[in-house]
Simulated scan of single mutants.
Amino acid sequence: MAKQKAVIAPVFLRVKAFIVDMFFIAMPLFYITTYLVLGSKEAFQSNQIAIALIWLAYGTICAVFYAKSAQSPGYKFSNIYLIDLRSGRKISFFRAFLRFLCFILAGFSMIGLLICFFRKDRLCLHDILTHTAAVRKSDNG
């Protein structure tokens, strides 16, 4: 069986996948923490530890999805996969979590997220640092 060819997913597909992941993974975590655990919006807004723990839980859940099937719910919806650039295979949980941490750090400067618009391969800083890429199956092969 021949190897499936893949191309780096367009930026708009990756953004769409991120938005879907926010709604399917992050929003329930925020809701449960705000109203079931802390009891009110005011308690949530004043609890930075809870917010940080939600983002760590979000990153962990996404890393599990990437390690298990190379797709989060948003990636599945957008029909893209997260792969290792060197081997073409799915990445480990630890590498996926490291990618999430790099994404958070890259987001603080915004340069790490906007760098994809200035690179021919369209990779963001967190993908460059972890040697990963969001790809989709090639139309011609």
Rank of each mutant, 00 (worst) to 15 (best):
A70D: 09
L82N: 00
K90D: 06
T60K: 00
G112K: 04
I111F: 13
R99G: 02
I104A: 12
D84M: 03
I80Q: 02
C116Y: 10
F94T: 14
C62A: 14
S109G: 13
F93N: 02
C62D: 06
L123P: 05
L101F: 09
S69I: 14
R89D: 14
G88S: 07
G59F: 07
L105A: 15
K90H: 10
L98P: 10
A106C: 11
S78Y: 01
D127I: 12
I128Q: 00
G74Q: 01
S78D: 05
C62V: 09
A52T: 15
S72A: 08
F100Y: 14
A67D: 02
S69P: 06
Y58L: 08
R119D: 04
A52H: 13
M110I: 15
L113V: 08
G74D: 00
C116M: 13
L82Q: 01
L85I: 13
R122M: 09
G88M: 10
L123S: 05
D84H: 07
L56G: 11
S72C: 02
D121T: 03
G59Q: 09
I104W: 07
Q71G: 05
A106I: 04
Y75K: 10
A96T: 04
L82R: 00
Q71K: 09
F117C: 05
K68M: 08
A63S: 15
I104N: 05
L53I: 15
D127K: 10
C116E: 11
R86P: 08
L105R: 11
Y75N: 10
A57N: 04
I80F: 05
Y58D: 01
L85Q: 11
F77H: 11
A106W: 03
F118I: 13
N79L: 06
S87W: 06
L123F: 04
V64S: 05
D127P: 07
F118K: 13
A57E: 04
F77W: 15
D127L: 09
R95G: 06
I128S: 01
M110G: 05
L85A: 06
L98I: 14
I54R: 01
I61Q: 00
C116Q: 11
T60V: 09
H126R: 04
F108H: 13
K68F: 07
F100Q: 02
I54Y: 00
K68C: 06
L123R: 14
F117R: 06
L85C: 11
A57Q: 05
L98T: 14
D121G: 10
S69L: 11
A96V: 06
Y81D: 07
L105P: 04
H126Q: 06
Y66E: 14
G59M: 08
